[in-house]
């Protein structure tokens, strides 16, 4: 280890990239260094064909991420800040463009930017002690990593208005009921279960998973008739991929059996 601790850890096992926010002494507050590392990590996820799913978690006991590091983002001169905001958006845009599935493993405090990063994941698993919220308006801000849009798209406009305007805190049970998270487990099972979810995703055809993500994301933005057309087009693409795989399978009985298990 160097004396300077890395703000983000990246590890790869069994086709899963494990990204860990690593500033536990400040509950993984999101700062410029972490953002830069996240940028590189996301590029690695995008470009490495060996990565089929991602698990995102936070180091330390207290929480996944308590929000943006205000000591850093606040002190910058305004023009610099403005430039940063533009750049930050680039990170979120890069994230959204990646066709691989992300599983968020959320423990303890998941606030502000932390909540927003969680919302950029496709599946979210919380530990029982998880606490969630978007407290920005109490600080004179609004969420700026997509939260004003991703929260209502995941949990509904009605819940979104309450979350943003009242800065309410949600327990893991609340979050599960709202559909903000897809499962709740005990703290000691959090990472294991998240890895299991990701593992299941790695056993699917990565191209089909990518198409599935696209059909939901792009379809949500289209009028229904066009969305249905998109679905059919992508389904046909998946079907032709499957045809190609099946032809491959005929040459190899072993992979054919594996293919059947996936079906």
């Amino acid at each position: 280890m160097t004396t300077k601790q890395s703000p983000l850890l990246y590890d790869k096992r069994d086709h899963i990239a494990f990204i860990t926010l690593n500033r536990p002494q400040v509950i993984n507050a999101f700062n410029v260094a972490m953002r830069d590392s996240l940028w590189s990590a996301l590029e690695a996820v995008r470009d490495d064909p060996d990565v089929r799913a991602v698990v995102l978690s936070g180091a330390g006991e207290k929480g996944f991420c308590a929000g943006a590091d205000l000591s850093e983002f606040g002190s910058a001169p305004s023009q610099h800040v403005a430039r940063q905001v533009r750049f930050e958006r680039g990170v979120w845009e890069l994230w959204l463009s990646i066709p691989k599935p992300f599983v968020g493993a959320l423990h303890g405090y998941t606030f502000g930017s932390g909540m927003e990063m969680a919302l950029l994941c496709d599946l979210r698993l919380a530990s029982q002690d998880g606490v969630f919220g978007l407290p920005e308006v109490g600080l004179g801000m609004i969420p700026a990593a997509g939260g004003t849009q991703t929260f209502p798209r995941q949990a509904g406009l009605s819940a979104g208005l309450e979350a943003l305007l009242t800065a309410r805190r949600y327990t893991a049970a609340d979050a599960l009921q709202l559909g903000l998270v897809h499962g709740v487990v005990s703290r000691d099972r959090l990472l294991g279960t998240a890895a299991q979810w990701a593992g299941q995703l790695t056993r699917l055809d990565p191209q089909v998973v990518g198409l599935a993500k696209r059909t939901l994301r792009e379809g949500a933005d289209l009028p229904l008739p066009q969305a249905l057309e998109l679905e059919m087009r992508l389904a046909a693409q998946a079907f032709s991929l499957r045809g190609a795989t099946d032809r491959g399978h005929r040459r190899s009985p072993k992979t054919q059996a594996a293919g059947r298990r996936q079906a």
């Binding site: 308006v137 109490g138 609004i142 209502p152 406009l157 208005l161 943003l164 933005d221």
Partner: peptide, 23 residues
């Protein structure tokens, strides 16, 4: 007790954003 302008912008982002493509 929260910041009034932030509240108004949050409200705008939520209601208007609902009708926009994500991007």
């Amino acid at each position: 007790s929260y910041a009034p302008i932030a509240l108004r912008y949050a409200k705008e982002a939520l209601w208007k954003g609902t009708d926009m493509p994500l991007e």
